[in-house]
C-alpha cells in the first residue's frame, strides 16, 4: 500500500498535468488542439530555460532569487548597446557574458562569504533590478525589430525559441546526467558533508551551479526579448518565483539532491503555462491566474513533502531481518 502511494507520489506532477489538460480540454474545446499545445510549449520556453538553470542551484540545496533581475539587467545592457549602434550579435554576446558573471557573484557570496543563499540572492536581486532601471532610466525601451524577428524566425520549420529551449534542456540534461560534474552535484545536494568526505570539491561545484543558473537567466532574457521586443521596468519581474515553482513541480526537491532538467523543468513550466492558457481559454478573470497557479504549486509541494516523509519512514529501522514485516506494519499504522 505504501509502495503504491510512493509510486503515485513520484508521478504526481504528470498526473496533475494530465488532470489540468483534460479539465481545460473538457471546459474549452480547442484547448487540446495541436496548434494550441505547440503554442503552449513555445510560450513556456523562457520559464523552462530558467527552471533548468534553477534546477542546478536547487540540486545543491541552494536557491537563486536573482534570476529575474539578471534577465532584466542583461536585457537592459543589450538594449542600450543596440540603441547605441552595436550589432545584435555583440549585444547577445554581452548578455550571455553578463548572466554567468552575475551567477559567479552569487556563487562566491554563498560559498566564500557563507551568506545564506536566500539572503545573498535577495541582495543581488535588488542590485540587479536597480541596475536595470538605472540603465533603462525606468522607461520602456523599444528595441529594433531584429529581436522580434529573432523570436519569430524558424529553423527547418521549427520556431527558434523552441530550438533554443530544446538545446538548453538537452545540454542541461547531459551535463547533469552524463558528466562527473552532474553526478557529483547530485551527491553534494544529498549531503555536502558526505560529498566532501568522498573527496569532492564542494565549493567549486556549488559556485558552478550558480554560474549555470546565471547563464540560463541570460538565455531566458533573450527568449523574452524575442517575444516582447522591448525592455520594460517590469521585465522579468517575479520570474524567479515561476522558475522555482516550475523546477519544484518538475520533481526537483528544495532540500537538494533530487531532480532533473528534463523532463522536469519543461513539464513544470508547461504545467504553469497550461494553467494560465487554460484560464485564458475559459475566459477566467486574469487576476485569478496567480491564485490558481499558486494553488497548483502548493499541492505539488505538499505531495513532495509527503513523499519525503514516506521515504524517511521506510528507512527507520536498524535490523534487516524484520524488514518485510516492517513495511507492511508501518503502512498499516
Amino acid at each position: 500500500m505504501k509502495r503504491t502511494a510512493l509510486i503515485l507520489l513520484d508521478h504526481a506532477v504528470i498526473l496533475l498535468f494530465a488532470g489540468v489538460l483534460l479539465t481545460f480540454g473538457f471546459l474549452a474545446p480547442g484547448f487540446l488542439s495541436w496548434a494550441s499545445l505547440g503554442n503552449l510549449l513555445i510560450q513556456s520556453s523562457p520559464t523552462a530555460v530558467l527552471a533548468a538553470g534553477m534546477t542546478f542551484v536547487l540540486m545543491v540545496a541552494g536557491v537563486d532569487l536573482s534570476v529575474g533581475a539578471v534577465m532584466a539587467l542583461a536585457a537592459a545592457v543589450a538594449g542600450k548597446m543596440m540603441l547605441g549602434g552595436f550589432s545584435m550579435p555583440l549585444a547577445l554576446a554581452a548578455m550571455l557574458f553578463m548572466g554567468p558573471a552575475c551567477g559567479l557573484v552569487n556563487g562566491l557570496l554563498v560559498t566564500r562569504l557563507h551568506i545564506a543563499a536566500f539572503i545573498a540572492t535577495l541582495g543581488t536581486l535588488w542590485l540587479g533590478r536597480g541596475g536595470a532601471l538605472w540603465i533603462t532610466e525606468t522607461r520602456a525601451m523599444n528595441l529594433p525589430d531584429s529581436f522580434l524577428h529573432l523570436g519569430s524566425s524558424r529553423l527547418l520549420g521549427i520556431p527558434l525559441p523552441g530550438i533554443i529551449c530544446a538545446a538548453v534542456l538537452a545540454a542541461g540534461n547531459v551535463l547533469l546526467e552524463q558528466t562527473p560534474f552532474g553526478r557529483q552535484l547530485r551527491a553534494t545536494g544529498h549531503s555536502a558533508v558526505a560529498a566532501a568526505k568522498a573527496g569532492i570539491n564542494v565549493r567549486r561545484l556549488v559556485t558552478a551551479a550558480y554560474v549555470i543558473c546565471g547563464f540560463c537567466a541570460a538565455l531566458a532574457g533573450i527568449l523574452v526579448l524575442g517575444q516582447l521586443g522591448a525592455v520594460s521596468p517590469k521585465f522579468g519581474l517575479n520570474k524567479e518565483f515561476a522558475a522555482i515553482a516550475a523546477a519544484v513541480l518538475g520533481g526537483t526537491s528544495l532540500f537538494g539532491g533530487r531532480g532533473a532538467v528534463f523532463p522536469g523543468s519543461l513539464l513544470g513550466a508547461a504545467l504553469i503555462q497550461a494553467v494560465e492558457n487554460g484560464l485564458v481559454a475559459i475566459n477566467a478573470n486574469p487576476y485569478l491566474y496567480p491564485v490558481v497557479t499558486s494553488a497548483v504549486i502548493f499541492v505539488a509541494v505538499l505531495l513532495d513533502t509527503l513523499r519525503q516523509r514516506l521515504r524517511a519512514a521506510a528507512t527507520r529501522r536498524i535490523f534487516p531481518e524484520t524488514e518485510a514485516k516492517a513495511f507492511s506494519a508501518s503502512a498499516a499504522a
Binding site: 553526478r183 544529498h190 558526505a194 569532492i200
Partner: peptide, 15 residues
C-alpha cells in the same frame, strides 16, 4: 558514506 540518490555505478566511481 553512500548517496541514495545516485545509482550503484555512480556511487562506486563518484570521484
Amino acid at each position: 558514506n553512500l548517496f541514495p540518490n545516485l545509482t550503484l555505478a555512480e556511487n562506486l566511481f563518484l570521484t
